[in-house]
């Protein structure tokens, strides 16, 4: 039971992050309807609304009136953090043990292979993405 609730909490956190990412990507305040469109998947409007309210309660987003609805934007992003983050990542290659980077390692010589694989992956998708 504890595992179940842990998983549900994680799913909720993932959705909050997904909404935050959509807001950050948009670069301007979005109404809940616009957020729903930006998420590009089958979700209930109320789910998005609830998530935005929860994010607002946590001070992760700010909101302003936009007609009858609120428009939401991410709270101030951590500009200063970027330099420290870069230092954290680049300072010592062995830190990949502690920090899980998305790309790990990449050889510039792999570009043609990656391009071919990307084409292949784009041909392979079945309705999941845009």
């Amino acid at each position: 039971m504890a595992g179940m609730s842990g998983r549900r909490r994680r799913e909720r956190g993932d959705l909050e992050n997904e909404v935050l990412a959509a807001l950050a990507a948009a670069g301007r305040p979005l109404t809940p309807g616009a957020v729903l469109a930006a998420l590009g998947r089958d979700l209930a409007y109320t789910t998005v609304m609830t998530t935005l309210t929860r994010l607002h309660a946590k001070d992760a987003v700010t909101r302003e009136r936009a007609g009858r609805a609120y428009a939401y934007a991410p709270a101030d992003t951590a500009t200063a953090a970027a330099r420290r983050m870069r230092r954290l990542l680049d300072g010592d290659a062995d830190r990949t043990v502690v920090l899980a980077r998305f790309l790990d390692e990449l050889d510039p010589g792999d570009v043609p292979v990656l391009q071919r694989l990307l084409t292949q992956a784009e041909a392979q998708h079945h309705g999941g993405g845009r």
Partner: peptide, 30 residues
Amino acid sequence: ALLDARALCRDVGGGQGRLVVVDDDVEAVA
């Protein structure tokens, strides 16, 4: 490295699995 990472997370208001978006173009990291 863990302590540095923890200090960074505290300063950017992370924690509890939260996504923090930074302005500079850096690679995504957990």
